[in-house]
Every structure is written in structure tokens, then in C-alpha cells.
Design a protein around this nucleic acid. Structure first.
Lengths: 125, 125
DNA sequence: CTGTCGGCTGGAGCGCGCTCCAGGTCAATA
DNA sequence: TATTGACCTGGAGCGCGCTCCAGCCGACAG
């Protein structure tokens, strides 16, 4: 059975999620990561829960959600169980936005491929 | 048979491609749109060729190509027929990058959907 | 003849999302 | 004991891709 290491240092957290410590601090500053514990000398101590929260935020960010929206989502997370519906709604909308972005990229890709094909047809005289 | 209107004012060009005039001027400034003609009092006159060039640049930009790379492409366009191979190669690489971006977005979307499913499963007790 | 409009230039400014820095505290190591 | 290293804070700075601005010009409408 795997041992679950509960607390993580900022460096470990950053390494596991794949962000810089500066980014973590920035996220805390702007209210995306409220409630992270501190040790006796003021250093952050990340729980597994904090890590998965950070990971989800990063995933949303990486898939194009702007910080303002991320803040809204983080607020809902703080807001307890009765915000679950709103959290779901927000994620569903993001899901649709990803679909749209992919569709748009595919259209643009289509055009790029047409241009490639055209260059090829010109090349072969 | 459709009449092809050859010259376009900056405003028309902007409207057709869906960018602002400022963006057009910016693109010219940084070397993406060399060779656009001017009328007797210095106003830009866009040909159909200019328009399609601008449209392609925008398409590349919208699909995530950074300005530096766009500059490289624009250079190749200026470089005449013997750069066709390099242009094709550049577009092919961009095509692959779009594939990668889409794949990445789909992974992130997967995770978002798992989270939605999780919220749902919690909601129904 | 006088607006108003669309365009021109060079250069400043902006919004986003970090990223870096100075100056400090503590713990463990040589 | 001295040094190193990880972390802390507040705040400045940055890279990207535009976007806006002041001040100007020339054409055309009323």
C-alpha cells in the first residue's frame, strides 16, 4: 500500500504541479489559493487537497481560462457545498469553450493545409 | 461574372479581414506587410494579393503562431519562388503544432469533464 | 468656406500573466 | 561558527500583441 505524504513544501508543490514557486505565490496573492497553511516560521505547507486544487486551477488556466474566471471558480470553491451547482456550471461552460476553440483551430488548420497543398502544386509545375 | 475590385482602402481591408487598422499599421511597422502600395497622398492601397497575404498571416496568428515566426514567414514570402520549400516546411510545422495544441486541449478537457462528473456524483448523494 | 471623415506618423500606454529582485529569516551542514 | 539553501515579503519589471493618442493632411458634403 502506498504511503500518502500529506504535507508538501512550496518547492515540492511547484515541482509536482509543474509551475514555478513564483506562480504559486502569485496565485495566492490574487486569491486563487486561499487557506494554505503555514508552518511555525511562516512557510507554506501544501496538503494533498491544496495540490489537487492547484492542479485543477493550472489545468483550467492551461486550457485558456483567464485569471478573472479562475478567481470566480476559486471563490466558489471557498464557498462550500452549496456552490457545487455553480462550479459545475462554470466547468461545463469552460468545456464548451474548449470545444469551440478546438473547432476554430481545426478551421485554421484547414486553411494552412490548403496553402501547403497549393505551394506543393505550384512546386511540381 | 463577378467584378473583382482590385484596390482596397485600409478601412476596407481591415473590415474584410477582421482586424483593426491599427493592427494593419502595426503589422507593416514590424515587417509583416512590406510592399503595400501608397496613393498620391500616402494612403495605403491594398491589392487582392495584399488582402490574401494579410488574411493568411491573421490565420496563422489566430492559430497561435507568435509574431517572431510570422516575421520569418513574411520574409520568405518576400524572398521569391525559391523560398517556397521553406514556406511549406514552416507551414507544415505549424500544422503539427496545431495538432499538438488540440491534443493538449483535449487532455485538459478530459480532466475538466472528470471533475464535472465528480461534482455530479457528489450532488446525487 | 467650413466641417467632418478617413487616413497618416511616431511614440506612449495597456492588459495579461507571470517573473524577478532586494532584503530578510531560519535550519541544517561543513 | 560560518555558510549555504530554501523560503518569506512587497513591489518593480517584463514580453507579447496590440491599442490609443496628438497632431497633421487632403477630399468631399452641405
Amino acid at each position: 500500500m502506498g504511503v500518502t505524504k500529506v504535507p508538501y513544501t512550496p518547492g515540492e508543490a511547484a515541482g509536482r504541479i509543474g509551475v514555478s514557486i513564483d506562480t504559486i505565490r502569485y496565485y495566492e496573492k490574487i486569491g486563487l489559493m486561499d487557506g494554505v497553511q503555514r508552518d511555525s516560521v511562516g512557510r507554506r505547507v501544501f496538503s494533498d487537497h491544496d495540490l489537487s486544487r492547484l492542479g485543477l486551477l493550472r489545468c483550467l488556466r492551461d486550457s485558456g481560462m483567464p485569471i478573472a474566471r479562475l478567481r470566480r471558480f476559486a471563490e466558489l470553491l471557498q464557498g462550500g457545498d452549496d456552490t457545487a451547482g455553480q462550479r459545475t456550471a462554470l466547468l461545463e461552460e469552460h468545456d464548451r469553450e474548449i470545444d469551440e476553440k478546438v473547432a476554430q483551430l481545426r478551421l485554421e488548420q484547414q486553411r494552412v493545409r490548403e496553402k501547403i497543398a497549393w505551394y506543393r502544386s505550384v512546386a511540381e509545375h
